[in-house]
Amino acid sequence: MRITRNGLAACVTAVAGVMFFCAAQAHHSYAVFNTKKTETSVATVRLLEWKNPHVWLWVMLPGPGGAPKLWGLEATDIGSLKRGGWSKRTVKAGDMVKVAFHPLLSGQAGGSLVSITLPDGTVTTPYGPPGAGGGPPR
């Protein structure tokens, strides 16, 4: 995979958030997400739902009181992810990762994935390594 190591996850998250906000509205309105808010959390992967028009990352996040809760995080489409170095095997069920996302304004357990820190410490975004430019997401 073409994923760079980067320990400055917070910086990456901020930059990626801006880029994503600028570009990711292509398939549907981005107004459903709170782009002014970026949440970060450790997460346990349940499923990388490798489908179009958006790949969804389903993870367990710590809920109130610590009880894990299922969240769905929207990424870009398969083509944009593949061109950004992802594959259907980038994460698998049980992987411990760190995610950054814009939450849904509705308050539901969902959001738009901004960046992910993989188990080996590499950081990437839904359209490739931070700063790589990547192709335009759908």
Partner: peptide, 19 residues
């Protein structure tokens, strides 16, 4: 890369996301 929109579309006609 194949792109079949209907296979996993979660955007609704009301502008919401089906979770």
């Amino acid at each position: 890369v194949e792109y079949v929109c209907l296979e996993g579309n979660r955007a609704t006609s009301a502008g919401t996301i089906d979770l």
